[in-house]
Computed example of a mutant assay.
Amino acid sequence: MTTKSLMIDAATSLFQKKGYKSVGLNEILKACNVSKGALYHHFPNGKDELLIACLQALNEGIMADIEDIFSRHLSTIEAAQAMIDKLIYSLETEGTLSGFTFSSIVSEMATVSEPVRHACSALYENIQSIYYAKLVTDGFSNESASALALLMTASIEGAMMLCLTQKSIDPLKKIASLLPNVVKGF
């Protein structure tokens, strides 16, 4: 693992657990066992640039995971159920959704930094595009697929945040049970 990827992995984990503002550069340096010079060599603009790299890495990981799940299932409902099942499994076995969500970073930073807001927006747009493409394949019109993709993104992301704050898998289970009826009723 390169020094840069080590810093991105450690910082991503710290940002997801503690929030961007609560994590100092020294904590990141200590977690990676690197010097301040190494950090600024890879991220000349410091912590903000590192955060954007973390969001891009999350984007790649989340997108690869969602694309894999959606490619293995015939319908949007089946794929969404499989994805939610994976999230529930992660919560039950690991007690966290680290690596699956970035909402905490969005809520903390999206109004503070325009580059961070753009990175977060791109991730949500990418997630919606996968849902959209599958819905169109399922026969939904472009307009309906777009609306449903937005609804799915908001519902699943919101349920993940509720699971974390309630320390319960119930919100994801509820979304999983309601989603088929919502999609069929559209």
Rank of each mutant, 00 (worst) to 15 (best):
D9E: 14
V183C: 03
L87H: 01
S168A: 04
D65N: 10
A57W: 05
A133R: 02
K4T: 13
V112I: 13
F100N: 05
I169W: 03
Q128E: 14
N142Q: 13
G19D: 10
S13A: 06
Y20F: 14
L74I: 14
L135N: 02
N181A: 15
V136E: 06
K167M: 12
I28T: 01
M161R: 04
A122S: 12
G185Y: 09
K30D: 15
D48V: 09
L50I: 03
S22V: 07
K18I: 09
I62G: 03
Q166I: 11
G99E: 07
A122M: 15
L51Q: 02
N33I: 12
A110S: 15
A159Q: 07
V136T: 02
A154T: 12
G185A: 12
M83Y: 15
I69T: 06
D68T: 06
M1W: 06
F70A: 02
T96M: 05
M160W: 07
F140C: 09
I28H: 00
A31Q: 05
S13E: 15
Q81C: 07
E78F: 05
E78C: 00
A31I: 02
G61M: 09
I28V: 09
E157P: 13
A122E: 13
N126R: 02
M160R: 04
L50K: 00
I169S: 10
L39G: 00
D48N: 04
L164T: 06
D170T: 14
V116L: 06
K134M: 06
I77D: 11
T153W: 08
G37A: 07
D65M: 09
R117N: 14
A133S: 08
L39Y: 05
S168D: 12
M109C: 09
L123Q: 02
E78G: 03
L25E: 10
A119L: 03
P115A: 01
A147H: 06
D9Y: 07
S113M: 11
I156E: 04
K36F: 13
K174F: 12
S71N: 07
A79Y: 03
L148D: 05
L97K: 00
N59D: 14
T153P: 09
D138S: 01
S129I: 11
A147I: 15
L25Q: 05
L179V: 07
V183D: 00
S103L: 15
T153V: 12
K86F: 12
G158M: 08
R72S: 08
T3N: 11
N26L: 10
A80T: 07
L148Q: 03
A145P: 10
R117P: 08
K174V: 15
N181W: 13
S177M: 15
A154D: 14
T96E: 14
L25A: 02
R72V: 11
S129D: 11
T3V: 12
A53R: 01
T101G: 11
M63I: 13
L91E: 13
A10I: 15
I84H: 00
S90Q: 11
M160Y: 05
E157N: 07
L123E: 13
L135C: 02
A122W: 08
V23I: 08
L87C: 14
L148P: 11
M160T: 05
N142D: 13
L58V: 04
C54N: 01
A122Y: 11
K167Y: 12
E27C: 00
N45I: 08
K173D: 13
G139W: 01
N181R: 11
D48I: 04
G139K: 00
I77G: 02
D85E: 06
C163N: 07
L91D: 04
A31H: 01
